[in-house]
Simulated assay, not measured.
Amino acid sequence: MFDIKSFYEAKSVADAVDALVKDPDAEIISGGTDVLIRVREGKDAGRSVVSIHNLQELKGVKLLENGDLWIGAGTSFSHITNDPLIQKYIPMLGEAVDQVGGPQIRNTGTIGGNICNGATSADSASTMWTLEAVAVLEGPEGERRVPVSGFYTGPGRTVRERTEVCKYFLIPRESYEGWAGHYIKYGKRKAMEIATLGCAVRVKLSEDKTRVEDVRLGYGVAGPTPLRCRKAEEGLKGCAVADQEAVAAFAKAALDEVNPRSSWRASKEFRLQLIEELAKRAFYEAVRKAGGEVNA
C-alpha cells in the first residue's frame, strides 16, 4: 500500500493548477514511476497527489506551422520512441528514452516526469540539452517558457514551482533541421540500469559532409545537473570530420567543463575516463548518421 492522503484526477491543466493551489500539501503525478517510489520509501508519504496522467492535452507529438516540434509532457517514452515525427526528425531522442528502465517503465513513464524529476541521470536530459529544448509551464500566474538548459538548479531540483504543471516541450526547427546525433548510455548492464554516464552529441556537417559546421556535446551524471560543454564545442567547429587530433582535443576539452563525483556506481576517475572516450564514440557515430565518413 502507498501512504497517500488523497488522490485527485484533474480534468484539465487549469484544474490541476487550481487543485495544487488549494492544497499546499499536494504533489503532481503523471506516470508515477518516480513519485510512487518516493512515497513507498517514505520521502513523500502522507501527501495528496493530483494526477494529470489521463490529460490528452499533454500527450503526443506535433509538427507546428513554424516547423518547431511539440512534445507533450505527458507522452510516454514508448510513444516517443515509436512516433513517426520523432523517428523522422529527431530519432536520437527516441533512442535515448528507449534505454529508460524496462518495457513497463517506458510504457508508463513520461518525458515530462523524466525532466521534472531533476535527476542528472535522466536518459532524456542530455539529449534535450543538445536539442536546445524549451519547457512550457503553466501555474497560477499563467504560462512561462524555460530553456531546458536553465531548468535544473541542482540534484533533483528544478525551477518548476510546486503549483506549476509542465505542459509540453518545444524543439526549435533550427535545432534539428540538418542535424544528426547519437546518445550513449554507459551502465554496468544493458537493461534496467540507471546511467553511470550519459553522453549526447549532435552534429551539423558541411554540404559535402567533410567538415563540422556545428556540434553540441551534452552529458548526464558528469555533474550535479545535466550539462553542455560549450567551450569544447567551439574548438571543433570548422574542423574536418576525419581530423582525429581535433576530435581527440574536443573530447579532452570536455574534461575542463565537467564535475563528476564518486559514487557506488563509479569513481570520479572512471567517469572522467568515460567522459573523454564517449565523446569521441558518440561524435563518430553522429557523423556517420549525418552521412559523413570517418576512419576511427
Results as ranks from 00 to 15, higher is better:
residue 199 C to I: 00
residue 16 A to H: 01
residue 172 P to H: 01
residue 215 V to L: 04
residue 199 C to H: 00
residue 198 G to A: 00
residue 113 G to C: 07
residue 45 A to M: 07
residue 199 C to S: 03
residue 56 Q to Y: 04
residue 95 E to H: 12
residue 41 E to Q: 15
residue 97 V to P: 07
residue 247 V to G: 11
residue 36 L to I: 12
residue 170 L to S: 04
residue 15 D to N: 14
residue 188 K to F: 00
residue 117 N to P: 11
residue 288 R to E: 07
residue 36 L to R: 00
residue 2 F to Y: 15
residue 105 I to N: 09
residue 73 A to K: 04
residue 137 L to M: 10
residue 8 Y to G: 06
residue 187 G to I: 01
residue 217 L to M: 02
residue 281 R to G: 03
residue 275 I to E: 09
residue 290 A to S: 11
residue 249 A to V: 01
residue 199 C to G: 01
residue 167 K to S: 01
residue 198 G to W: 07
residue 20 L to R: 14
residue 170 L to D: 01
residue 183 Y to I: 11
residue 159 V to R: 00
residue 274 L to H: 09
residue 39 V to P: 02
residue 244 Q to S: 11
residue 173 R to Y: 06
residue 292 G to R: 05
residue 180 A to F: 01
residue 53 H to A: 15
residue 95 E to M: 11
residue 3 D to A: 10
residue 32 G to H: 07
residue 23 D to K: 07
residue 92 M to A: 04
residue 195 A to S: 15
residue 222 A to F: 09
residue 121 S to A: 14
residue 65 E to I: 06
residue 207 E to D: 15
residue 77 F to T: 03
residue 12 S to K: 13
residue 28 I to R: 12
residue 227 L to M: 14
residue 152 Y to T: 09
residue 184 I to Y: 09
residue 29 I to Y: 03
residue 34 D to F: 06
residue 177 E to N: 07
residue 10 A to E: 08
residue 255 L to Q: 00
residue 12 S to T: 13
residue 19 A to F: 08
residue 265 R to A: 13
residue 92 M to D: 11
residue 183 Y to N: 00
residue 40 R to F: 14
residue 120 T to G: 07
residue 192 M to P: 04
residue 59 K to Q: 15
residue 66 N to G: 03
residue 12 S to R: 09
residue 213 E to D: 08
residue 31 G to S: 07
residue 104 Q to F: 04
residue 146 V to E: 10
residue 134 V to W: 10
residue 52 I to M: 05
residue 204 K to A: 08
residue 50 V to F: 10
residue 197 L to S: 05
residue 207 E to N: 12
residue 26 A to G: 04
residue 45 A to C: 02
residue 77 F to P: 02
residue 75 T to S: 07
residue 45 A to Y: 06
